[in-house]
Every structure is written in structure tokens, then in C-alpha cells.
Amino acid sequence: MRRRNFFRLAGISAVSTIVPNVFAHEVKENPANKNTLTNPFETKGKWYKAALHVHTTNSDGDVDVPTRLKQYRDLGFNVVAVTDHRTTNDLSGYSDKNFLALSSMEFHPKTYSGAPTHHLLAYGLPHPYEYKEELSAQEMIDDVKSKGAKVFYAHPWWTGHTYVEMTEVSGYLGLEVYNDGCKGAHSSNAEVYWDQMLNKGHVLTGLATDDVHRSSEVGKAWTMIKAAKLDDRSILEAIGNGCFYATKGPVINDYHLSEDMKIKIECSSAKKIAFRVSGAGNGKVFMAEDGKSLQNAEWDLSKKKPKWVRCEVTDYDGNTAWTNPIYL
């Protein structure tokens, strides 16, 4: 139940909220636990190209479900999560051995702080789902999770949220580090939000999505998921374990931490490779020499010893790929 504590400070009335503050992946005693997430480059499976934020005419998209799914199928996508606002869709009959239509939803419970509503994504939510507007934010997250859904936080910059709103609810596994649908408002990226949460001990992963509403927006950003099979159970398990990376185009071929504490990455041709870590300085950046490109980078962490390290790969067109964090 939502509880509010009213107080007066310096002559100005204010409202604060007492809310849950425990995350599904939060490790209070030892946030630097590298076993919390699965490194997709150190596990068996097959890579699947996934669109994880998709709208149709059943909410505010411009085409119906079959048309939207065909658009992604024609572009070589293997997984499409239809995330219409406040409703699921009947996706029976659209999946086959090469394509998975994943029943999902975007939901919008009220914030406790009074900021604009939360935008949250529930993957693998069975259809039909009865949307209950009267539920509090935490109650709604708990409800979709009880149905088997994996919850992620959508576009916090676009929504005008801060660390306050992101920590007033629990149970989500990651956030959209990039949302192409928000580029018109110049608020697509969420690296700062991600790093702030990681630095506070919240073990969160990062997705890249289209948030497609118009057909011209299809296929601009995606998430590469590594899973044992192309079925609901395997894909949801991979999403839940962080067995994926996010991208607008660059390909990541390998990313791992060696026994001698060197973080290494191999990728498609890049202009910049940036390792991001906890603490001051935020990491190390490698830039390609003029007329050349980078396809790998290595950084010795044995002396710095950060709590976590993630990587960003940016090509000459300005497109980026993001790994999930590795914990030392």
C-alpha cells in the first residue's frame, strides 16, 4: 500500500513517499557479484535479433498486428514483442521455427513522486491480461510478474524521470539504454541513468528498441539475444539473465574479462570503443586513428578494480552497441 509522509521544510510544504526499494537484481551485501548476470559470449546458444518495443493500431501504432509483424519478419528479425499500451494481443498463429511473436505490454502506473507516469515493459505477459488502472505502481509490477512477465524500465529521460522515480519501484530487470522513438525529443539515450543505478548497486541490463509507432521507424534499433531455442521460455530466460546486447548496428563478437583482469572486446569496424566503469573518470575511451578503424580493444583493470565494467562500440555513422555490465 502506498504511504505518504507529509512534512514542512523551511516554510515550504512538501510531500515525500515511502516506497519499496529492493530490486530483483539488487545485491545489497555485495553489489559487485559477477555471477548475477549471464555473459552471452561465454554461454552456448544462438543469436536472435529482437524488437522489444512495438506498437500497433490496438494502441497508438499506424498498422495492425499482422502487418507490423510482417514488417519485422521481412527485415530479418527473429523476435518481436508487441507492447501495445495497457493491452496484450492475441498472437497465436504468428510464430514458427524462425520467428517468435512474444505477447507483451507497455503499462503506465502512477508514480509515487507525482512525476509523469511510469512507462514499463512486460515481456511474456499471457493474453488476455486484465489491466487494472487502480493498482499502484508496485502492485501492477508485482501483478504482471506473477503472470510470468519480465519487466523493464522504458525511456526514463523522455519520461522526465530521475533516480527518485526509478528507485520508488522494484522488480524490473533493466532499462532501455536506447529508445529510437524518443530521438525526435533528443532523449533517446539513458547511459547516465544506467550508470547511476549501477553505481548504487542495482544490477540492471540495457536494451535498445525502436518503440515503433510508424512504419518508417521499423528496424532502427534492436537487441541481440542469445538463447538455447527460439521459443517463449528460452527467450524470456535469456532476457531475464541478461544474455544479450543492445545495438543500433555495430556487431559485438566477443566481450569478456580474462583471469588476469583485462577486459577485452572484439567487434565490427568502429570509430570509438568506450569502457565504462564505476567511480570517477567513468572508464577509458579508445579512438581509431584517421583513416582506420578499431575492431578490438583491451584494458587492464587489475589496478583500478571497479565494481563493474560495460562497453560501448560506436561506428563511423554514429551508431552504437552496448554490452551489459560484467561484475568483477
Rank of each mutant, 00 (worst) to 15 (best):
residue 8 R to T: 13
residue 242 G to W: 01
residue 61 G to I: 03
residue 70 K to T: 11
residue 178 Y to F: 12
residue 300 D to E: 06
residue 214 R to A: 11
residue 136 S to H: 07
residue 136 S to R: 02
residue 294 L to V: 07
residue 192 V to C: 09
residue 216 S to T: 12
residue 303 K to I: 10
residue 207 L to G: 00
residue 26 E to L: 08
residue 162 T to W: 06
residue 60 D to N: 13
residue 119 H to S: 08
residue 227 A to K: 03
residue 137 A to S: 11
residue 163 Y to R: 11
residue 185 A to K: 15
residue 174 G to F: 04
residue 260 D to L: 07
residue 180 D to S: 12
residue 242 G to E: 02
residue 132 K to G: 04
residue 84 D to E: 07
residue 251 V to K: 14
residue 295 Q to K: 15
residue 310 R to A: 05
residue 67 T to I: 12
residue 131 Y to C: 01
residue 10 A to N: 13
residue 169 V to D: 01
residue 104 S to M: 04
residue 35 N to E: 14
residue 306 P to I: 02
residue 179 N to K: 02
residue 3 R to H: 14
residue 276 R to V: 09
residue 307 K to S: 15
residue 198 L to E: 04
residue 255 Y to G: 02
residue 26 E to W: 11
residue 61 G to N: 06
residue 46 K to M: 07
residue 320 T to Y: 01
residue 311 C to S: 09
residue 241 N to F: 00
residue 6 F to E: 15
residue 151 V to D: 01
residue 302 S to R: 13
residue 164 V to D: 12
residue 71 Q to W: 10
residue 185 A to T: 14
residue 281 G to H: 08
residue 305 K to W: 01
residue 202 H to K: 14
residue 12 I to N: 13
residue 177 V to L: 07
residue 28 K to Y: 12
residue 17 T to R: 11
residue 155 H to A: 06
residue 45 G to Y: 04
residue 195 D to P: 00
residue 138 Q to A: 08
residue 144 V to R: 00
residue 27 V to K: 15
residue 132 K to P: 00
residue 323 T to K: 01
residue 2 R to H: 14
residue 81 A to W: 01
residue 188 S to A: 15
residue 93 G to N: 08
residue 219 G to D: 06
residue 318 G to L: 07
residue 92 S to F: 08
residue 176 E to T: 03
residue 157 W to D: 10
